[in-house]
Design a protein around this nucleic acid. Structure first.
Length: 827
DNA sequence: GATTAATGTG
């Protein structure tokens, strides 16, 4: 039984080991060697009373003098419970304590699982006992104090050190410098350093590292040059490590790299990792890779973690994921919280929920305390949120013991991403009420929230708040502000802020251009693009081009040719997203020949969207048969069609009147490819049936859809679906059904603007002028192109919802002083 | 005495 008790305790099954022990007691006397395990179990389960009972046993068996392990475990237990009297009593009874004084013994009594708080508490108790610690123990306490980040306790320790004559001990004072540095109190650290009579290299390193960690780089270099002049002291690996962390330009880093090789320090793994990290941070991933693969002969966990972080930061998510998997599987390295916090955003960006879940279970298996590790829980929360598991993200938020601004920001962002605007707003208000310190990222996140809502009232209010808090000079905040105003349709506000910005980057310009294109001001967008070219001496990137192409509905062929030339000039022809946009644009303006030519180019890295875009392109140009052919070709080429493929196909069939093909594809989608029909699919099929003069079938389809969807998530009882039916009524001039559907729509949602316009047109087509005027009047001033744009958007996948909202804001609300008037005047 | 981590703009 004895070995079993021992092994149960070793595998952390404390309760089982104690139960077994209690069973053993009446039967036979326990072996002495079992006691350490028993004590460990008691201690872990906080059973002090039982522990004391065993203390009696220990005396009975006279094992104190001969079993060091038993004594240590018992002492550890007492210290853990803060029972210093018992601890001292036990200490007094110890026959062999020659080399250890009481304090050290108590300090050693702490097992690895003790917290910094326990150490400092124990120290304070020791002081009450007037026991003088050894230098070694004192340093142990100072370190614990810096972990606690309590300046009050730190100063208390400092006073103690001074009063008890430790201020001439280099070791103690060095630890003191390090403690103050970690607390960010470089003033106090510098004071300790200045007061020291004898300094060694560690004293210098502690201060230099402190300044480096607090990013006071001029001070680091100044101290370094002073150090070089001190006799008998030579900078060592720690000094150079601090120096490397300050390097911003690869050129400077390279000279340190060279120096390390010269003095023979380069074989140090930590330094090697730091050199590699330096190159990665200085935008020289190519050098970093060489250092990692060729120079770092023995790679540590930190080296691997750093490589993952480097790839992640540069947006090479697949590479980062590959490295992570290589690290976990091939090298049998045990990933730590850093590895997980690095890997999680990678899988979040790849939207790989299975990996995210498996990391979560690994975190639990490895016994990492996620609830107390804010960074880890925030990363976990964000990853679940990005993979659309909002519930899991919420649970993580509520389980985090000390959420910080990042945790709050992350959950608000999750709500935004998953279209839960109201929850985002509520959480933001709660955050402010909870007095969590708001940072620049909170502001950016909130701007995004306002942009999604299109609420100028909130936007304006928060602009003021942001200004007051002093965040408005932050470039990223400014960019987010422009984007928000653009999304609220307030182009004047965006322009005003744009011109007031002293520093702009490519994102600033892109945001303005994108904004103009989105609200349909393509000529202003194009003008700004020309200005951008002259102001930034020809800077542009893939997003610039994609933004410009967004508005290609009203952009002429000559502009598309210009953009194509830009793409070739800036080497963007191999960028799949850029090329997809260009193909889409050529298709939209009816130049199928060019679209096809680009699509067929041999070196073009086609992806799933490329096929989808081309299928839709044929459809919108009336070549439904070609769409079907391309679909078969796509399958032959090994692509599994997705939901968007079928949206493209169905809208193509609808547009070309290929009702049988449409029904065939709809069936294929559900049965063969197991794709649950989305709102878009239903809208397409209803539109298709309606246009083919089967209004009854279309109506039935809506009912079928509602029935089939009753357990699903998409609300089919939606304006889009009824809108499709209304659109079909207009197409068929069916006044009777159209009027009924129009009435239904008018009771449904405040945002159903476009359908009132359809109804109005239906009245006009049937020469019912009075009704037409009434309908139009009731819903405001509809822009001439508006209906056309919306109609177009319905039959083109993807962007509809947001774009429609923006068009609503921009074109349909009457303007007062250049801003949209409150919604009440139009509804 | 020391290297690595989370949230955010187009």
């Amino acid at each position: 039984m004895n070995p079993l008790i021992k092994s149960l305790s070793q595998s952390c099954k404390y309760l089982q080991s104690l139960t077994l022990f209690k069973k053993l007691l009446p039967i036979s006397e326990p072996k002495i060697s079992t006691f350490p395990s028993i004590l460990r179990s008691y201690s872990s389960l906080h059973y002090l009373v039982y522990g004391q009972a065993n203390y009696g046993y220990l005396i009975k068996y006279g094992v104190f003098g001969c079993c060091v392990d038993v004594r240590k475990n018992l002492l550890r237990m007492y210290v853990k419970f803060g029972d210093f009297h018992s601890a001292y009593k036990l200490f007094d009874e110890m026959p062999t304590r020659n080399n250890e004084n009481a304090f050290d013994c108590m300090m050693h009594g702490f097992g690895v699982n003790q917290t910094a708080e326990d150490v400092v508490d124990a120290f304070e108790n020791m002081v009450k006992f007037c026991v003088v610690p050894s230098v070694h123990s004192l340093c142990h306490v100072i370190k614990a104090c810096s972990d606690l980040n309590s300046i009050k306790k730190g100063c208390f320790l400092h006073d103690y050190v001074k009063q008890n004559g430790f201020n001439n001990h280099v070791l103690v004072m060095n630890t003191m410098i390090s403690m103050y540095s970690k607390m960010g109190r470089l003033d106090l650290a510098q004071q300790v350093f200045d007061d020291m009579v004898h300094k060694d290299i560690v004293s210098w390193n502690s201060l230099i590292t402190g300044y480096a960690q607090n990013q006071n780089w001029p001070k680091v270099f100044k101290l370094f040059s002073c150090l070089k002049r001190v006799e008998n002291l030579v900078p060592n690996s720690v000094t150079l490590l601090a120096l490397l962390s300050c390097v911003i330009h690869a050129g400077n880093g390279m000279s340190i790299h060279g120096h390390l090789i010269k003095v023979g320090l380069y074989s140090d793994v930590q330094l090697g990792t730091a050199v590699f990290n330096m190159y990665a941070k200085c935008e020289r991933l190519d050098y970093a890779e060489i250092v990692f693969e060729q120079d770092l002969i023995s790679k540590t966990l930190v080296s691997w973690n750093t490589l993952i972080a480097a790839y992640k930061q540069k947006g090479y998510y697949q590479e980062a994921a590959d490295v992570y998997e290589q690290m976990v599987l091939e090298l049998d390295m045990k990933p730590d919280s850093f590895s997980f916090a690095n890997a999680l955003p990678v899988y979040a960006s790849l939207r790989d929920i299975q990996r995210v879940q498996s990391i979560h279970s690994m975190i639990i298996k490895n016994g990492l305390d996620i609830e107390n590790d804010v960074v880890l829980s925030t990363a976990m929360l964000d990853a679940y949120g990005k993979c659309s598991d909002v519930k899991a993200a919420e649970i993580l938020f509520y389980c985090t013991c000390y959420p910080n601004a990042a945790t709050w920001n992350a959950l608000i962002a999750v709500y935004i991403l998953n279209d839960q605007i109201e929850s985002g707003m509520n959480l933001f208000h709660w955050m402010v009420r909870s007095k969590v310190s708001v940072d620049s990222i909170t502001i950016i996140t909130f701007f995004k929230l306002c942009g999604q809502m299109g609420s100028l009232k909130h936007a304006d209010m928060f602009h003021g708040f942001c200004f007051l808090k002093g965040f408005s000079s932050n470039l990223i905040v400014g960019n987010a502000l422009i984007d928000m105003y653009m999304r609220c349709g307030y182009t004047k506000g965006a322009e005003h802020f744009f011109h007031s910005m002293s520093i702009k980057n490519i994102v600033t310009w892109n945001t303005m251009i994108y904004g103009y294109m989105e609200v349909g001001c393509s000529s202003t967008g194009l003008r700004l693009f020309q200005q951008m070219q002259s102001d930034t001496s020809g800077k542009l990137d893939s997003i610039t081009i994609i933004s410009l192409l967004q508005g290609s509905l009203t952009v002429s062929l000559s502009y598309l040719e210009l953009f194509h030339a830009c793409i070739l000039k800036y080497g963007l022809a191999l960028d799949t997203q850029v090329m997809n946009s260009l193909i889409n644009s050529f298709a939209k303006i009816g130049n199928l020949e060019m679209a096809r030519k680009l699509f067929m180019q041999t070196d073009f890295p086609r992806d799933q969207s490329s096929w989808n875009i081309m299928i839709a392109g044929y459809g919108m140009n009336g070549q439904g048969r070609e769409s079907s052919k391309l679909f078969s070709q796509m399958v032959v080429n090994g692509y599994a069609p997705d939901a968007i493929t079928f949206t493209s196909l169905l809208s193509s069939c609808s547009h070309c009147g290929l009702i049988e093909d449409g029904c065939k594809f709809f069936g294929l989608m559900v049965t063969k490819f197991k794709i649950q029909p989305s709102l878009e699919h239903w809208t397409c099929i209803i539109d298709m049936l309606g246009r083919a003069n089967s209004l009854e079938d279309a109506h039935d389809m809506i009912k079928t859809g509602i029935y089939q969807n009753s357990s699903g998530c998409a609300p089919l009882e939606s304006v889009a679906v009824w809108g499709a039916l209304l659109s079909a009524c207009r197409f068929n001039m069916n006044m009777e059904v159209g009027e009924a559907v129009g009435k239904k729509l008018s009771n449904m949602e405040s945002g159903s603007f476009k359908y009132h316009s359809l109804l109005s047109n239906l009245y006009s087509s049937n020469q019912k002028w009075d009704e037409a005027t009434e309908t139009r009047k009731a819903f405001g001033n509809v822009h001439v192109n508006f209906e056309f744009v919306i109609d177009f958007n319905i039959r083109n996948n993807g962007l509809q919802k947001q774009r429609m909202q923006r068009h609503l804001v921009h074109h349909c609300l009457p303007l007062v002083d250049g801003r949209p008037a409150p919604a009440t005047t139009s509804a």
